[in-house]
Amino acid sequence: MGIHSITVTVNGAKERLDVPSNMTLLQMLRDKLGLTGTKNGCSAGECGACTVLVDGEPVNSCLMLAVEADGRQVTTVEGLAHDGQLSALQEAIIEHNAVQCGFCTPGMLISAHALLERAPRPTEQQIREALVGNLCRCTGYLRIIEAVQTAAKKGGA
């Protein structure tokens, strides 16, 4: 099986990695880079726990090959806070008690972050539809939706 030498920027840091053909971006992040904030909930693009940004757009990292990330910018949940300062969205999630078990939270944050980047003042319906690919079994979603609204009011992602 082919091994590919790739260059990828993850959370602002340039990485040079050798990845086998069948390695997913999710496996690369977790197993090669130790970025375990991104979670594996289904390996099939259904649950959204593995959602990361690639060139600013959310994708299911379980359905993308690591080799496809060559030359691209990847942002994971670990890249949302800067110098220990939480993003408005992260703070809003805490403020609304919109986290319970926390397993969906990283992917949820990434999807919501991307939404606020493309639609700074989303409607409730836009938020619901933007988060359809991120399953949560604990919260019932409403607090997450409210947290996104709060972050939007405070000026975005």
């Binding site: 970025l35 994971t76 949940v77 670990e78 806070a81 939480l86 999630i93 805490i94 986290v99 939270t105």
Partner: peptide, 12 residues
């Protein structure tokens, strides 16, 4: 606030 919230929103 939840004691585990910070860890859970930062992926740590």
């Amino acid at each position: 606030p939840r004691v585990d919230a910070y860890e859970k929103v930062t992926g740590t």
